[in-house]
Design a binder for these strands. Structure first.
Lengths: 119, 119
DNA sequence: GGTCAATGTCACCTATTCTAACATCTATCC
DNA sequence: GGATAGATGTTAGAATAGGTGACATTGACC
């Protein structure tokens, strides 16, 4: 029996499937890609193809957005920049950013009303 | 985080994905459906949608075919008929069938050369 | 050689996805 | 209050992917 266990990393899901599995719109999914947050493969016919890992990433993004984070924030959190000469200042900046987002989060929580699952 | 764990039974995979995961052709997949061996759902636009369980079924069919079984045989093996008045005769017949297929299997094995995995 | 099961191929039509552009909405800032 | 920026909606036009149906081909088997 062929191994489909690598299905988590195999890009076999078209955007329609992703829409169903994430409850995001095509517009959102493509926009997050434009913001460099997901990088689906392309078919010979230029159609986007996603893996289950991509799905997880998109769900993470969705959650972070619901928590009040910005796409730029999320990108930083996902791909923390390599240390560079003046890294101290950058780190401080990132911490400041996170704290600011944290405060935004508390405001956002009032609007969230349970992401994903409603009891 | 939404639950995509029921992905095994959720019909979210279009035929193109199934083709990639099974190495079957669209013609084969549709033919097996015409023979009543798989029953994908349909989108509003009449496109077939498969679950991971469907993938497994198709891989089973592929294996059985490679083993020399007939689609009719496979259908019998998958959906054994309910017992009926003259079930004894049917059972004997099915056993005869299986034995015959088993002999065919031995012939077929010479042609198989390792299904799915090549060492 | 004829038959049947399984598959290939082609033509024509519909659905899905693509890009690009413009519109909308909501905070945030001056 | 109006400008700005981030996130998303909407629409148009073109291309790819998938649907059906019919006919052709291949390979066993009698």
């Amino acid at each position: 029996m062929p191994d489909i266990g690598d299905l988590r990393t195999r890009c076999v899901l078209p955007i329609g499937t992703v829409i169903q599995l994430t409850d995001l719109t095509a517009r959102q999914i493509r926009y997050y890609e434009a913001q460099d947050l997901v990088h689906p493969e392309r078919t010979a016919g230029n159609h986007r193809m996603y893996s289950l890992n991509h799905i997880d990433t998109l769900l993470e993004i969705k959650g972070q957005l619901a928590d009040g984070f910005t796409l730029a924030d999320i990108k930083q959190l996902m791909h923390p920049r390599h240390r560079e000469p003046n890294s101290d200042e950058e780190v401080r900046q990132m911490l400041r950013d996170e704290l600011m987002n944290q405060s935004r989060l508390n405001q956002a929580n009032n609007i969230r009303q349970g992401f994903g699952f409603r009891p």
